Amino acid sequence: MTQTILLAAGGTGGHLFPATALAQELTRRGFAVELATDERAEQYGTDFPARAIYRVPSATFTSRAPLAVAKTLGRLGKGFLRARRLLEMVQPHVVVGFGGYPTVPPIMAARSLAIPTVIHEQNAVMGRANRMLSRFADAIALSFPSTKYLRRSAQKRSIVSGNPVRDEVISYRDVPYAPPEPAGRLLVLVFGGSQGARFFSEVLPPAMEMMPSAARWRLTVVQQARPEDLNELRAAYKEANIAAHVAPFFRDLPERIANAHLVISRAGASTVAELMAIGRPALLVPLPHALDNDQLENATRLEESGGGWCMPQSGITPENLSEELARLLGAPDMLAKTAARSKAMANVDAVKKLANLVEELAGPEE
């Protein structure tokens, strides 16, 4: 009988992308994979490699006000009951959580039914949901050897697997980085997720307009933006005489990363892992209001290893960003060295290590 693995992931790229990578690997190993997530996953399409996808009610603690806390607990309780019924129906051999509060109901329901559980932490800082779940999970997979806020009681159940990346990302790992040629075009890729795209839409057009004309006319910008910002952003680039392709989401993002001379992005764990897997130089602007500053930790570690540059948003102006872009894009040898260092940092075996852990917990086929 085919063994079933249920993956639980919040509906953001940071959670769904490593879950996708694990689903691809487990499928190759003969497991049946199913997914429990929330309604946000719909923005990433319906092509998740799972036999079935389920929506489980969940909520995030956004306020300490008693009424708000009670409302959140009530929705999580509803999610727990829904998840328990789901697990009784699916009967998975292992439940794997990828963080975020949508992971809480399935993992807790699995514990109540004595189903083995794994949680995976993508960031250098353990997320709040994972901190809570680490008390109960049978195993914890980490992306970094030193992970902040990992409970001492959970350390003995932890392994360092790395952060899995999807097959479509790995397929571009062997594409060599081509630094800008003299007088050739400068292809800049900009993305930042739904929370991060607004800042880039505001600051990048004026920054690029201030660049020396010899560099500005060579620019081609490919940028992700919120739907409500698209028209204004396109107009700003047109007024600055900068070639730009702007869209709310790129389904072929790995290919666009591979083609870029420089990537400007937020510093979510999956973003950093994919940049390293392909090996491209990146200017990272961590999301300033990210919980526990996890993005700053991710960006700092990449910068310290020579695989990119970190600019805190609070210190960015169009003027100093323009100077930094001119410096980076005007140094093709430095871009190439940074790309090589980024690529050398990638843990391309992460998905195999995580799949090995899941397979061990699943036990032999019945």
Results as ranks from 00 to 15, higher is better:
Ala8Glu: 03
His15Arg: 05
Leu16Ala: 08
Ala21His: 04
Leu22Pro: 05
Gln24Ala: 11
Leu26Asn: 07
Thr27Pro: 03
Arg28Ala: 12
Arg29Thr: 00
Arg29Gly: 03
Gly30Asn: 01
Val33Cys: 05
Leu35Thr: 12
Asp38Tyr: 05
Asp38Gln: 10
Ala41Met: 10
Glu42Thr: 14
Gln43Met: 15
Tyr44Ser: 10
Tyr44Trp: 13
Tyr44Ile: 08
Asp47Ser: 15
Pro49Cys: 14
Ile53Thr: 15
Ile53Trp: 10
Pro57Lys: 04
Ala59Pro: 13
Arg64Phe: 14
Leu67Val: 15
Leu67Ala: 15
Leu67Trp: 15
Val69Cys: 12
Val69His: 12
Thr72Asn: 09
Leu73Met: 13
Leu73Phe: 11
Gly79Cys: 10
Ala83Cys: 13
Val90Tyr: 10
Pro92His: 13
Val96Tyr: 02
Tyr101Phe: 15
Pro102His: 09
Val104Pro: 04
Ile107Leu: 14
Ala109Pro: 05
Ala110Thr: 11
Ala110Met: 14
Leu113Cys: 13
Ala114Asp: 15
Ile115Ser: 07
Val118Trp: 01
Glu121Gln: 08
Asn123Ser: 08
Ala124Lys: 04
Gly127Ser: 09
Asn130Tyr: 00
Asn130Met: 07
Leu133Trp: 01
Phe136Ala: 12
Ala137Met: 05
Ala139Ile: 04
Leu142Phe: 09
Pro145Asp: 11
Pro145Lys: 04
Ser153Pro: 09
Lys156Ile: 11
Ser158Thr: 14
Arg166Val: 00
Val169Leu: 04
Ile170Lys: 08
Arg173Ser: 09
Pro176Val: 04
Ala178Lys: 15
Pro182Val: 12
Leu187Met: 13
Leu189Val: 03
Val190His: 00
Ser194Ala: 09
Gly196Thr: 00
Val203Lys: 02
Val203His: 00
Leu204Trp: 01
Pro205Thr: 11
Ala215Gly: 10
Val222Ile: 15
Gln224Cys: 07
Glu228Leu: 08
Asn231His: 14
Leu233Gly: 08
Ala236Glu: 10
Tyr237Cys: 13
Lys238His: 15
Ala247Met: 15
Pro248Ile: 04
Pro248Arg: 06
Phe250Pro: 08
Asp252Gly: 08
Leu253Gly: 06
Pro254Val: 03
Pro254Arg: 03
Ile257His: 10
Ala258Pro: 13
His261Cys: 07
His261Asp: 07
His261Pro: 09
Ser265Gly: 01
Ala267Ser: 02
Ala267Trp: 02
Val272Gln: 00
Leu275Ser: 05
Ala282Asp: 02
Leu287His: 05
Leu291Gly: 10
Leu296Asn: 07
Asn298Gly: 01
Arg301Asn: 05
Cys310Lys: 14
Met311Arg: 06
Glu319Met: 10
Ser322Phe: 02
Ser322Asn: 00
Leu325Asn: 00
Ala326Val: 07
Arg327His: 03
Lys337Gln: 07
Arg341Ser: 08
Ser342Arg: 00
Ala344Gln: 07
Lys352His: 12
Leu354Cys: 07
Ala355Val: 03
Asn356Pro: 00
Leu357Asn: 08
Ala362Ile: 03
Glu366Phe: 14
